[in-house]
Simulated scan of single mutants.
Amino acid sequence: MDVRQYLDSTYLKTAEQAGISDARNTAIVSQTVQEAIDLKFKLAMIRPEYVAMARKMVEMANSTLLIGTVIDFPFGSAPLEAKLSEARKAIADGADDLDFVINYEAFKKGDVASVKHEVAEATALGLKSHKTVKWIIEVAALNDLQIAQLSALIKNVVFSNFKEEHYQSVFVKSSTGFYETPEGIPNGATKEVVVIMLENACPLPVKAAGGVRTFEEAEQMIQLGVKRIGTSAAKAIAEGGASDTDY
């Protein structure tokens, strides 16, 4: 199985988080994008401040690589207008995919109306600009019932507001990779979590992000039915190996 067209090769650390200089962090982003171009991955997923640089690299290489970025990352708690403003800037800079962190804390507190409004408005912005929109629900912050309910909420908002032809452009995505869990507890995609998402988001596609570090794990996710895999181990996975990266 050629998994490369399922892989969103990902690097989302700030220089501070990585404990390195801004220049070194920029170099890692550039390396991530170039590697994705060379290995023909589906997409490179990077922070918004690097999108314009990555777009130039893709154009210079005459590559089909997609550029994705994260919006309201990693907490998802910003006001809707801040989310939309960040997304507009990413679109202007050349992003193809917009991965929004949903306001999962508002959802957990029962403010379902505002979450539905957020999904409708931000999805509309992305689709109007012919972008792929992904909603990160942060599964490690939710129990199984909440994962099912939030996946279904996104699906139902899409059903109510957009045409069937747009369904495949709106994903439900598992994780940011930055949620802090107690030692040893997964904060990304597991088989059990992905099955819940697939069952409740269908026919919207699902992206498994976080925790997929080997070819075998990627293959399992694809066989389950995911359409994208977000991982910082894309090169190792594509080469049939494994990685000890933290996403």
Rank of each mutant, 00 (worst) to 15 (best):
N161C: 04
I37L: 09
G126I: 09
N143G: 11
L39A: 13
H130K: 11
N161V: 01
W135E: 15
M57F: 01
A82T: 11
M60D: 15
V115A: 02
T69W: 07
G126F: 11
N62M: 04
A140G: 07
A87S: 13
A95C: 11
D93T: 06
K40V: 15
S129M: 07
D93N: 10
D144S: 12
Q146L: 07
G68K: 02
F159C: 05
T69Y: 01
L153I: 10
E81A: 14
Q146I: 05
M45D: 07
P48Q: 11
V158Q: 01
D72V: 13
F107C: 05
N143L: 02
L43E: 12
L65M: 03
P79M: 13
V58T: 02
S114V: 14
L127C: 02
V101Q: 04
A87E: 12
A92C: 00
N156I: 04
K40P: 02
E59N: 06
A44F: 02
A120W: 07
G94M: 13
E86Y: 03
K89E: 09
F100I: 00
T64Q: 10
Q149R: 14
S85D: 12
I154C: 08
V158Y: 01
V133K: 14
A106K: 06
K83C: 00
R47Q: 10
T132Q: 12
K108V: 11
F41T: 06
A52V: 12
I71E: 01
L125Q: 09
S151F: 00
A92Y: 04
E86W: 12
V158D: 05
D97T: 13
E49D: 06
A61H: 12
L145R: 07
A152N: 15
A92T: 14
E138L: 06
L125W: 12
M57H: 03
D97P: 03
S63E: 05
I71H: 02
E59M: 04
E81C: 07
E105F: 13
N62S: 11
L39Y: 05
G76V: 00
T64S: 06
S77N: 09
M53E: 14
E138R: 12
I46Q: 01
F100G: 10
A52G: 13
